[in-house]
Write a protein that binds this DNA or RNA. Structure first.
Lengths: 128, 128
DNA sequence: GACGTATATTCCCGGTTCTGCATATTCCAT
DNA sequence: ATGGAATATGCAGAACCGGGAATATACGTC
């Protein structure tokens, strides 16, 4: 039996790791190793949570060379859209999420330059 | 380890039964047997989901004679408050929830007159 | 085609959650 | 105090979830 889309969204957001991922992706598209690094996750943990979110339409992924770049969907479902708006207001008061933001600002893209390029709105082509 | 209040709220809402309960309580305080009836739940299922929500501050209960009247908290946490606002906009489009509303309108309080009294803003005293 | 890096998938385990059944508790009327 | 209606709780099994280890796949470089 198919679940209501709203419930699916709630399932995605009811885990702290996933919530932090979504929150970070609200700022910028990021590759797996960035998320791994920012959130202190093992490779498996990061990959699995991303797969979970992806399967449910909360994030999208596209491959760029050897990196998978994750981002929020350009056309989110109405239910997701609502929640994303809520998050921006809710999460700013929680230390964990403020801290994630702070670390994101300082991020030196060691492994993959794509995220930085995207954050600066430069086209995603090689050699920056 | 203590969970973030937002995540607690998401946990409460990521189950269809609980979501329907919260949705109904947005309309009016209700006793257990009403919810049982409206949602087609067994007594145990209704009681347990309500206990779940109550423990996490999403609903409140007070006894009135032999009935437990459940309602949304007068002073919800900011996180819950946000979600309750969202729900009003999100749920109206889903058939399950529209249907619950329809049945609520028609509700004949067979077991307990309290909910009806409350819905009509009459004081909760005996003999109506 | 061999290798290294980045990522995904599979299998397994411990912990949590959900459900049903039986039982307990609370309140009210007699 | 006894019985009935409404509700809660304890327990046991099923289902689900998240994490780790090992393995597989995809891409780029040489």
């Amino acid at each position: 039996m198919k679940k209501s889309p709203l419930i699916t969204v709630y399932h995605c957001l009811c885990d702290e790791t996933r919530l932090r991922i979504v929150h970070l992706l609200q700022q910028a598209p990021l590759c797996v190793c960035h998320l791994q690094d920012l959130l202190g996750l093992t490779q498996v943990a990061a990959s699995k949570q991303l797969a979970y979110l992806r399967k449910r339409g909360v994030v999208e992924a596209r491959r760029h060379e050897q990196w998978m770049i994750y981002s929020l969907p350009q056309a989110p479902s109405p239910e997701l859209d609502w929640q994303l708006r809520c998050l921006q207001d809710c999460l700013t008061t929680h230390p964990v999420f403020r801290n994630d933001l702070r670390r994101l600002k300082k991020l030196q893209p060691a492994c993959c330059w794509a995220a930085k390029a995207i954050r600066q709105d430069r086209p995603l082509t090689k050699k920056n």
